[in-house]
């Protein structure tokens, strides 16, 4: 299942949503807001989304993941809006009969999400400047 939300991510609920008595493994990944990047401090992050496309891209990710790995359930929840250090912006949970599939599938999902799902973050640096984060486009 796919969810884009403006609310705080309930990681326990994400975990429970993929649990299944057929599963021997449940993997949960949380992407959390870092207060330090290199030598720069972060006060907060703002996440923005092209929602109609992001939902389609996330659904396509789930479909491809299910073709590539034998998994039972997948949950991807992404939060938008204003986040403080320590808060989770994204949660991915995967359950499978054996752990290797859940680990590999979860890793692929977060790596691919960060390339192909149109959700962007703005760093609100502690020096008072603001900057959209676009890999390959620094400066």
């Amino acid at each position: 299942m796919i969810e884009i939300t403006n609310n705080v991510i309930d990681s326990q609920a994400v975990l429970e949503s993929v649990q299944d008595t057929r599963a021997g493994a449940v993997v949960l990944f949380l992407g959390t807001t870092r207060s330090i990047t290199g030598d720069r401090g972060t006060d907060s992050l703002d996440y923005e989304c092209y929602e109609s496309m992001a939902i389609q891209q996330l659904e396509a990710l789930e479909t491809t993941a299910r073709e590539r790995w034998d998994v039972i359930n997948i949950q991807i929840t992404h939060r938008l809006g204003h986040l403080l250090p320590g808060e989770a912006s994204v949660a991915i949970a995967v359950s499978s009969a054996h752990r290797v599939n859940a680990f590999e599938c979860g890793q692929w999902l977060i790596d691919t999400l960060k390339e192909d799902v149109p959700i962007w973050k703005k760093e609100n640096w502690s020096d008072g400047t603001h900057e959209w984060v676009h890999p390959g486009m620094e400066g």
């Binding site: 959700i119 962007w120 890999p135 486009m137």
Partner: peptide, 10 residues
């Protein structure tokens, strides 16, 4: 039509 800047990566 939309312009899609590089996604936030990490």
């Amino acid at each position: 039509i939309a312009i899609i800047p590089p996604v936030s990566g990490g």
